[in-house]
Design a protein around this nucleic acid. Structure first.
Lengths: 230, 230
DNA sequence: CAAAATAAACGTTATTATTACGTTTATAAA
DNA sequence: TTTATAAACGTAATAATAACGTTTATTTTG
């Protein structure tokens, strides 16, 4: 081996799992109670050290599946944290991933098993180490990506209504949006497929359900189309 | 120490150093001839292992200064590479940073000392390991950031002309832009300060020199202004 | 059973931004 | 003095955005 054995560091992956609660119209973060010392008992993002024979993306997938039961969902590396003082127990480089999931998809028994819990981003407990910073970064990142990528749809169920989509974007942007202009712009992308079905849970009239057309999106992207939502 | 000593990995930083050559109108990558085995003698991005007592950003700064003589320039983390098979000599996690510099600022003797050399992105040699991938990622990243952040100005000298700025953006976008519309849009941001000086190196008439107003930019940003260039 | 209430859906207009061009200007060289 | 040329300036048609008003479908209420 050509490299110096004495210069190694611990490397972990942490996953910022975000979900959107349609009822409360709030973006939620999955947090679990840390089991290992130091700081056992504090709230933490889900995370673990990478294994020796494991790509970092696979490590993130492993962590996500272990704590949520989910695989094959949106999961992406977004940043690395590597200050020497970030963990007093040792020099740990943490690779932050984020995952956007549909709240209803989560396997509740698996989540419970690890003492995990959802918190609204507006009402978070104190997080261990620099995990609070990670959440802040993830929220900024969501804000900056939401306009030009269809990430929002990862957070809603397969079938959703335009008012639900509007509420989600209002939660992301943290401000009210004009519903008429929102509807116009969203529909102008022609990426939403309207179904012959209504959701009557929040009005007498009922709101049409839509599906996001993933194939059409990829088709447009491959032609160099620039998406602009909201 | 709470963590398992056997689960450590090597962690390196690699710096993608980009510069713009006004003469040839091409974006260049700084590359140096790798000294350590395996693959000593192949072209590589500048990079080294992080030190035990060193924040990752500081490691990147150290590498950049060692190979270019530059400090206090634009330098940002952009991605992590951590597949198990990326380096056959061991499990190395590489944190990719990128730096955008003004070509003329570079300390030529320091660069030469390490056998470093500029290559046009259009005419790169085969790079070691996954460094070619890193360069591709950096180019895409530049493309995606150039429109909404004033990164371009990092690549030009303090004083530059509008035609030079246009050529730079044409190099980034890889296509011709309408000079009249470009000029109008750039000036509409009011972030360019015209000087009472002309550069006559490329025309009889001469082109006015401009400076980018960094303070005004930060002031506008703090008010939530959305920059749109080009 | 008509009227009221309400969320959802649809529509219009003024303003602003973008695109795609044409024209004038300053200067050095012929 | 004319010519050549890059730089600078200008304009009109089209498209996108912002800021509003109106109608519709349905349930609940009097």
């Amino acid at each position: 081996m050509a490299y110096d054995e004495n210069r190694k560091s611990w490397v972990a992956v942490d996953c910022l799992v975000l979900g959107y609660d349609i009822e409360s119209k709030s973006i939620n973060v999955l947090s679990f109670m840390r089991q290992v010392d130091p700081f056992a008992g504090q709230w933490s993002l889900i995370g673990e050290f990478i294994n020796e024979e494991e790509d970092i993306d696979d490590a993130a997938k492993r962590v996500l599946e272990k704590y949520t039961g989910l695989n094959d969902v949106f999961l992406e590396q977004i940043r690395v944290y590597g200050n020497t003082n970030r963990d007093p127990a040792g020099r740990v480089i943490s690779i932050l991933y984020w995952s956007l999931i549909k709240l209803d998809d989560i396997h509740k028994d698996i989540v419970n098993k690890h003492g995990a819990q959802w918190f609204s981003v507006g009402d978070l407990p104190k997080m261990v180490l620099d995990h609070g910073e990670m959440i802040d970064f993830g929220r900024d990142y969501l804000l900056s990506k939401a306009k030009n990528t269809p990430l929002g749809f990862e957070l809603l169920p397969q079938k959703f209504t335009l008012p639900q989509l509007l509420n989600l974007y209002e939660a992301i942007y943290g401000k009210a949006l004009d519903d008429r202009n929102f509807r116009k712009k969203m529909l102008s992308t022609e990426l939403l497929q309207r179904l012959d079905e209504k959701d009557k849970s929040s009005s007498k009239k009922g709101a049409f359900l839509y599906e996001f057309n993933q194939e059409k999106y990829h088709e447009l992207m491959s032609k160099g189309y620039h998406l602009e939502l909201v």
